[in-house]
């Protein structure tokens, strides 16, 4: 699942129209929409709203190793280096309140230009004199009021490779008053082809993460418990048995055949703990010879 968090409805509108989302019941004041593999939530503007929204989403849905958290929306461009209307991926998000910098992992190649993102607590025009950009002098620098807190909250649930921050500069702070909801929708709408390709890559990456985590094999718990009972396992014997099974699975050893033979030969179930220990030792020997 891709958890997409945006601040404003006018930002989300082109995506909602494009991706065939259906509305879900809101949680508190957070409106939500969903497709088969994406959930879009509107946080409202500001760090507190962004953090609360991210925390609520994560706490409700218990993200797994294959899920992704994506912050998407418009922002202000700093120092004139960022191109208005273009989609950027933030490679660093600096919280202007605490000075803490969050670095999303960039192992996933999205094919987007990158930018440094400053995330503050006031509108840019009122604190522009405080802003000085530190990450790479030739880099486009952006400013928003949500990403730092959203990443901080999501960071409790997701790894840095699962968090992606995407921003489209809509103004330079000074001209923010000229930016209407219609203009923001247009701006996002014009990036829909790029966003579509980004979403495809995010979905493929999510699939890859799922495959990677599925490599950690789990045997049928009922079968394990049954066999442990037949072996009269103590807690430490159970741990040993489960490790042997895991080894056998990863080494491609048909361990069930060995256990079935024990049953046919009348060795399993055992009559006492000592016998169980001896049989477990024999099982280990057969697996590792």
């Amino acid at each position: 699942m891709i958890f997409l968090q945006m601040a404003l409805y006018c930002e989300a509108r082109p995506i909602l129209q494009h991706e065939a989302f259906h509305a879900m019941p809101p949680v508190g004041r957070f409106q939500r929409w969903q497709t088969e593999d994406m959930m879009l939530t509107l946080s409202g503007t500001g760090q507190a709203e962004a953090a609360t929204c991210a925390a609520v989403t994560c706490a409700m849905h218990h993200p797994t190793a294959s899920d992704l958290f994506v912050v998407l929306g418009t922002c202000a461009a700093l120092e004139g280096k960022a191109e208005k209307g273009r989609l950027y991926r933030a490679r660093s998000i600096e919280d202007l309140g605490s000075g803490r910098v969050f670095y999303p992992d960039l192992v996933l190649d999205l094919g987007l230009p990158e930018a440094g993102l400053l995330s503050g607590y006031q509108e840019l025009k009122s604190q522009k004199e405080r802003v000085w950009y530190r990450d790479g002098r030739d880099l486009p620098a952006l400013y928003d009021m949500e990403s730092a807190a959203a990443c901080a909250a999501a960071g409790h649930f997701f790894g840095p490779h699962q968090i992606v921050v995407l921003r489209i500069p809509s103004d330079s702070g000074d001209d923010a008053g000229l930016v209407t909801p219609e203009r923001i929708s247009d701006m996002i709408g014009q990036q829909m082809d790029t966003l579509d390709s980004v979403f495809q890559r995010l979905k493929a990456f999510s699939e890859l993460l799922g495959q990677e985590s599925a490599q950690v094999m789990e045997e049928d718990p009922a079968f394990l418990e049954q066999t442990e009972a037949a072996l009269r396992c103590s807690a430490s014997m159970s741990l040993r048995f489960r490790q042997l099974v895991r080894y056998a699975c990863s080494a491609g050893i048909a361990y069930r055949e060995i256990l079935e033979r024990y049953v046919q030969e009348g060795l399993l179930p055992v009559t006492g703990r000592k016998e169980g220990k001896d049989l477990l030792a024999q099982f280990e020997k057969e697996l590792t010879r």
């Binding site: 490679r91 660093s92 670095y103 990450d135 790479g136 790894g159 490779h161 993460l209």
Partner: peptide
Amino acid sequence: IEIGHYKDVFCRPRQH
């Protein structure tokens, strides 16, 4: 990417 300290990147929790 300029960073303050290598641990800001290297020691993040839950890395893959």
